[in-house]
Computed example of a mutant assay.
Amino acid sequence: MLEVTKKLVELLDLVPIGDDHFQGDSEDLGFPNVFGGQVLGQALMAASRTVQGRLCHSLHAYFLRPGNHSMPIDYEVQRVRDGGSFSVRRVIARQDGKEILTGSMSFQVEEAGFEHQLSMPSAPAPDTLRSEEEWGHILSDTLGDKVPERMRANLKRERPIEIRPVDPVNPLKPEKRPPHKQSWFRAQGPLPDDPVLHRCLLTYASDFQFLGTSLNPHGVTFMSKNLQVASLDHAIWFHRDFRMDEWLLYDKDSPSASGGRGFNRGNFFNQDGVLVASTTQEALIRQR
């Protein structure tokens, strides 16, 4: 496991601070606020610590306030129900006594049942694509002083989750495109055989390059002037087992944008074409 990946695994390894209460550190990814995927991944880890013999199959969360990446985050888990097959947990994330995220997670015992799935869409193989980190170096070197120093550092930063975008958008010169994006994802280096950790890592990664899908048709990006963007909610469904240290295709689309909000959907497929997880997110995409 690479050092940068080890740090991410440690970030998700929360510290117990009381009955069903946990605390996690925050990381600075160069964004103004805490990365939403970090809070989601830690919230799922907190809930998973209170469930035995069952894995999460769905997560629904709302982002309530921006998080401060210079402060730790406290997670309170409420045991809503433990049934014969399912367990439900509610999680509240707080900083400085204020709620920044609330969510519910459902866990299920392993069982067999009906099977069907959508076919995997076509996409270039990951070994034919440049990584997001490589594109960051190219952009930073090409644009030079046109990009602030902090942003250049963010473009070049080493990433625990390797992302290889298909047909990436130039963030400073975006063109109007169909509301569809694809990227290959995997963790940098081998991971332990812990299905809870793999689910929490996918949850963390699922917030990368998601919101921007709803920006594609409008020819704008995070770096566009007079644009306010923020994730409002996030949902994940885990369908089948997977490994985050193996390539997963994240296929995303945005069926609608209206009222200052963009709606996004995503599916994760492994390289054998198996659908392993699905996501949705509504985001604020407001032009000031």
Rank of each mutant, 00 (worst) to 15 (best):
K252G: 01
V39H: 02
L129E: 05
L248G: 01
Q271N: 09
P171W: 05
S26T: 15
T213F: 02
K6Q: 15
D74K: 12
G53D: 14
M1I: 09
W247L: 07
E3T: 12
A123T: 12
D96W: 02
F242W: 04
L101N: 13
G189V: 12
D207K: 04
F63Y: 12
L11M: 11
S122P: 00
V9S: 04
A235I: 08
G259S: 12
N68P: 00
H239D: 10
K176W: 00
P192S: 06
R81S: 07
K176F: 00
I236W: 02
E76A: 14
Y250C: 03
A205W: 05
D193V: 11
G97C: 12
G53F: 02
G30Y: 05
D245Y: 04
H69T: 12
D145P: 09
D74R: 14
V147F: 03
Q78L: 10
G83D: 04
S231P: 12
R157H: 10
L284I: 13
L248H: 06
L197F: 07
D241T: 14
H21L: 15
F114E: 13
L139C: 08
M105A: 15
K7D: 10
T128K: 11
G262V: 01
R54E: 03
L211F: 10
R79E: 05
D233L: 12
V15R: 11
N270W: 09
S122E: 15
L143P: 00
D145M: 04
L202T: 07
R90H: 09
T50V: 08
S119K: 14
N216G: 00
T279Q: 03
L118P: 01
G262D: 01
E111N: 11
T279F: 00
